[in-house]
Write a protein that binds this DNA or RNA. Structure first.
Lengths: 342, 342
DNA sequence: GATAAAAATGTAAACGTTTGTATTATCTTT
DNA sequence: AAAGATAATACAAACGTTTACATTTTTATC
């Protein structure tokens, strides 16, 4: 039994002895209603504590003013920052945001997408989880006219806008800095290699070396799959112990790896940055906590969330138009942050 | 113009030459529809790719199966963990979650509450922001039969369930540990003193001392308002420098303060834990990153989110009942985590 | 002051479900 | 095979808006 204990248009209408339609129009600022009536309606509505029922409106208009955002995980300041950006942009355009995390599971990604669809979102912001190889669950939304904007971890095969950060550039900035400060033997600590972002970071690393005419050396490369932290620590420690001669610089593809490397180096009795300089990636909160504070590459996560949301809203609101906008592919620049580790 | 490009009950009904009502009942597992028909409907629905329109259902049933969650900020692993718990519990009961952050602003708290209300949530989970002193925006929801569950930072004057962690206990666990390891002169680093949680931590500190028959010494107490990190650092450093004789233990009311203290102590050339043992509060991700790893008090944030959500859903689903459930006031236990700093 | 034009308001249908009640089909029982 | 009981289905209203279209009121023009 629907509990209609709140004020409806009808209540206002009855109170003022006018029709529901006029009340509705007054409230939505329709020019066809007399200024005096509008005032009266606005006043009465406020006084009676009217709050529009957006479920009803949603049904009628085919719009819910809700956006879904699907991230791979919550325990990562990067994604949290993105969500902040999303909420910020959504709020300023009067959209609400539904949230879910796939926890890096394809299965849950599908479930959540389904949930968003039946929850009636007007559009979806999504960062693919690393297991994802098939995209029908997203294509289904698109077919139903629910636009998608991908961010960070994206697929080129989906008909959607995309917003990413320039990981090649970011890595170049990091490695260039090391090179400019005189380092020549620079190791690379890689994260999950199947992720495109990490591939790009490696690419940036190679490009930087190439530009400085330093040959690429396989021995200086290691990948850690970033499962348990203890596992990563072991991989890194082993890698560093075996490396002869030691590098004079390290570029880690994320801040956590950088910190694990610093921990290893400290235990080996090495000084940072004197003996070995180190740069991380992502500007995670960890980077300022650890000692020495980690130099790193800033990724504009908040801005990414904002821009993606803006694109999405534009696409939603232009969907009545016959001529569809072409898909955009935004790449946001990164920048280097110098701290104590270099 | 509502875009009805998706399959509706009517489409299935027409296809099978039966009525919409029967389709609806078949789908919802009503016993009154013949097994054969139900099968047929289920099959056709799946095949046509039917996805129920929950906006329409929401309008009819007066239920949206959406929960709102309002936190004071995103940049805090504690709240993120709570959101994870909320999503987990919500998902298992088929609820969706709308999210917003007040960013510690009373104004934004009100706006978000309003947004949730007009977004049609069935209930609201809320952690009060530290500015909040008046509660009419919440009372308004309650009056409209939208139940609220408060967590962490709560007001006793609101008619709602509450879930908190036992901060007095947590502080006692921390200080007891220091006392049991032979420390006698224990300093207290306080956070924002207006927050009840912090008052309770101080209380726990005092109770622990009292139980050990150690007099409470005002000189060992400092509060930092936790604005900018640099500001906190200065307050703490000054406090420690002036303190004569130095304490042999420190209990910090949150992990960040603990780490700032450790940084200060290291600069003063002191050894942790040999010279001074230190315990933080909250088990933030920082606590395992810093060296030495910080002993701390674990707060069951995920569980808090889960429990609060469960309470909320129960209240929502029992709201048809004439006899209202009494409000619950859950307090979850904390526990001490021993690491390198003690 | 009659008429046309413009402005303001009203009527009713629609959005896609769910559900109380009415109707029809099927089965029992005699 | 007629009656009643029961099972299965259909009809139609309702949820609170928005909006196309119809109607009434006001204003302007002669």
């Amino acid at each position: 039994m629907p509990s209609s204990n709140s004020v409806r248009l009808e209540d206002i209408a009855r109170q003022l002895r006018i029709s529901v339609a006029t009340v509705s129009r007054a409230l939505s600022g329709d020019a066809r209603v007399k200024a005096a009536t509008r005032e009266l309606v606005l006043q009465t509505a406020a006084q009676m504590g009217y709050v529009p029922n957006s479920v009803a409106r949603g049904l009628r208009k085919g719009r819910t003013y809700m956006l879904g955002v699907l991230i791979p995980k919550y325990d990562d300041a990067f994604f949290v920052e993105i969500v902040k950006g999303v909420e910020h942009a959504a709020r300023s355009r009067q959209y609400k945001v539904l949230i879910a995390s796939s926890e890096q599971s394809y299965q849950r990604e599908r479930e959540s997408t389904q949930m968003f669809q039946q929850g009636g979102v007007d559009g979806l912001l999504v960062c693919l989880c690393k297991e994802t190889r098939r995209y029908q669950h997203f294509e289904q939304l698109i077919k139903r006219n629910i636009p998608i904007v991908q961010f960070d971890c994206v697929s080129k095969t989906l008909a959607s806008d995309r917003v990413t950060t320039d990981d090649v550039l970011g890595a170049r900035q990091a490695v260039d800095y090391l090179l400019n400060s005189g380092r020549r033997r620079i190791a690379y600590l890689g994260g999950p290699a199947q992720l495109e972002g990490y591939q790009n970071r490696l690419r940036g690393y190679r490009e930087a070396l190439q530009a400085a005419q330093i040959p690429y050396d396989e021995q200086l490369i290691v990948h850690s799959d970033h499962g348990a932290r203890a596992g990563d620590m072991e991989v890194i420690a082993n890698f560093l112990k075996k490396l002869q001669p030691l590098p004079d610089g390290i570029f880690a593809s994320n801040d956590l790896l950088a910190i694990l490397a610093m921990k290893s180096l400290k235990r080996m009795g090495l000084k940072i940055p004197e003996d070995i300089a180190i740069v991380g990636y992502g500007n995670s909160p960890f980077s300022t906590i650890y000692e020495p504070a980690l130099s790193t590459v800033f990724q504009p996560a908040f801005e990414m969330g904002e821009q993606a949301t803006q694109l999405l809203i534009e696409r939603i609101e232009s969907s009545d138009n016959e001529s569809p906008l072409p898909f955009q592919d935004l790449t946001l620049p990164t920048y280097f942050i110098q701290r104590e580790s270099t």
